[in-house]
Design a protein around this nucleic acid. Sequence first.
DNA 1: AGTCATTAATTACACTTGTAGTTCGAGTCA
DNA 2: TGACTCGAACTACAAGTGTAATTAATGACT
Lengths: 135, 135
Amino acid sequence: MPPKTRIQPPQTPAISDAEWIVMREFWARGETNSAEVIAALGKTQHWKPPTIMTLITRLVKKGALGFERQGREYRYRPLVDEAHCAHAVSKSLVDRVFGGRVAPLLATFLDRQKLSKKDIAELRQMLDQKPGGPK
Amino acid sequence: MPPKTRIQPPQTPAISDAEWIVMREFWARGETNSAEVIAALGKTQHWKPPTIMTLITRLVKKGALGFERQGREYRYRPLVDEAHCAHAVSKSLVDRVFGGRVAPLLATFLDRQKLSKKDIAELRQMLDQKPGGPK
DNA sequence: AGTCATTAATTACACTTGTAGTTCGAGTCA
DNA sequence: TGACTCGAACTACAAGTGTAATTAATGACT
């Protein structure tokens, strides 16, 4: 028997900044039509509908969104995992900006932003759950 | 007397991914000539010299790098602060991908990457130095 | 002074991205 | 059935980005 090959995580499509904002609307809803996302983003981003439709169409082409027709309407749903994509883009930033190290990334927020006590506690709790941390 | 206006930090130029890699070489050296950066990046990135010269020239145009002529040679130096730019680009990512929250950013590394004990300890130490942490 | 090598400037090109207008096709309504 | 509305498709354009070749200018060397 040949050795069991390691299953590689699928490559994430290259999602641009504007496309990220669109994807987050679909991830938040699971599956929805374009009108709903257009209504939401029209408010928060002040994009015109054709702008958002373009971004949706490009995401479909990239394989990040899929769709099913229902009458004349399309129902779109994400084809990629949010957490997986979030990690990929975060890792890319850390590699490029911080030489692959996570500590300086965290430091930039601790040193240059006002994080709430709750945020700090939350971060601390996360680390406490790692080996070597208090229980 | 009018109230003292708050001094805003300078806007950071929009530095692209490839340009980041170039900037980090100049930040690491403080001031240097193009040949040195070209030699370094030729090895690590396998870029041809004209590619790197283009990126340098664009960074000069963006205000991220300045230069002084010495004979026919230019000595370049960064005009923007690395930590400041790193924070700006990191914050932009967190806002776009994590809705402005730092905890999910850290979680993505804790959950999806193998961080060394040393890394974890370093992160923990940072947080310990924040109010409410053990001394 | 002429030649050569080096450095920066200029040019190129394809692709990506942000933003949006216009057209087409299908469903709905009177 | 025709008109209208809506949703997607198509089109547009400017700017930005990645990658690199070519040309021009300047200093160094013989």
